[in-house]
Computed example of a mutant assay.
Amino acid sequence: MRAIWKGAVSFGLVNVPVRLFAATENHDVQFRQVHEKDGGRIKYQRVCSIDGEEVAYSDIAKGYEAADGQMVVLSDEELKSLPSRSSKEISIEKFVPSEQIDPLLFDKSYYLEPDKTGLKPYVLLRDALAKADRMALVTVAVRTRMTLAVLRVRDNVIVLQTLLWADEVRAPEFESLGDETHASAKELAMASSLVDSLSGDYEPDEFEDDYAEAVTQLVATKIEGGDITETPEAKEEDTEVVDLLAALQRSVDKAKAAKGGGAAAADSGADDDSGPATKAAAKKAPAKKAPAKKTTAKTAKTTEKKAPAARSATKKASSTRKSATRKSA
């Protein structure tokens, strides 16, 4: 695990240096939205709802929608002026009975690990919490915003759980559940009997996410059966076509150079064989540039397979080479 925050727990006159680690992780099944035909991922553009134009990320600002629907745009400078906390201190405000904290208020959970220098005060705080059977109500600034949290002990490790603010919990206002609605004594007795028959201890490993397991098995079966969709990257294909066209253009330029530079072609042949007979052969048969033709033809075939859009360029290159050969001859 990687620490996401470093600071210290303020316990009276004692400071406990700690590191914060996320205590949970999401194993929910994640799907991608793809094109059914070819499996390509669906992309979304940032489009303005007024003018319909795509907006660059650098032009996007934060806006607050008022109750009447009006939009107030806030600049980065204005946001920086808002009160924020960057303190690296977990300040214990009070120790409260555990039953007073409604589980509905719990938000995110983190493990606190002590630094080597703070092991003894960490153990002291942990044991004090366990003995008192209370939670330490604290304030902490995580990602610049001050929030309420509690410290409690789990498996000999101090756990920090952030709390929702009181106004973030909705009131259950259901008219059908009035105070006058209650079960009869007979119904309650039968329900109590059922509760007793189903009573037991909570064993986390007793339950599992059968949906995630079924999805994993389904995907594995389809892969083993070859039922997969190849999704080539469009950008890579475009790059390959451009490279092939560039290679064809170089072949055309080379053919044109050979057309107007017979002497240069002869000198190039002399580099391979400096004998007089070779020079004479080069003058009589400039078409001895056959290797270049084969290479170009091979490139053209490859282009026809991978980039149909380059066929016209290939034909043009071939026509130019033939014309150059006839005139040279």
Rank of each mutant, 00 (worst) to 15 (best):
A3C: 06
V14A: 08
V18D: 00
A23C: 02
T24G: 01
E25P: 02
I42K: 07
C48W: 00
E54S: 11
V55M: 01
S58Y: 03
E77T: 07
L79S: 02
E89V: 15
S91T: 15
S98C: 02
I101H: 04
P103Y: 05
P103V: 05
L105Y: 15
D107Y: 04
G118W: 03
G118C: 05
P121A: 07
L124A: 07
L148P: 04
N156L: 10
T162H: 05
L164P: 02
W165V: 04
D167W: 04
V169Q: 09
P172E: 03
E173K: 12
D179Q: 11
E180Y: 06
T181C: 00
T181D: 02
A189Q: 10
L194M: 13
L194G: 02
G200D: 14
D201S: 14
D205S: 12
D210W: 11
A212Q: 08
T221H: 14
K222Y: 13
I223F: 03
E236D: 11
A265N: 08
A265D: 11
A265G: 09
S268L: 13
D273W: 02
A280W: 12
A282Y: 11
A282L: 15
A285E: 13
A287F: 14
K289W: 13
K293G: 00
K293Y: 10
T299K: 10
A300D: 03
S312I: 10
K315S: 07
K315R: 10
S318Q: 15
S323V: 04
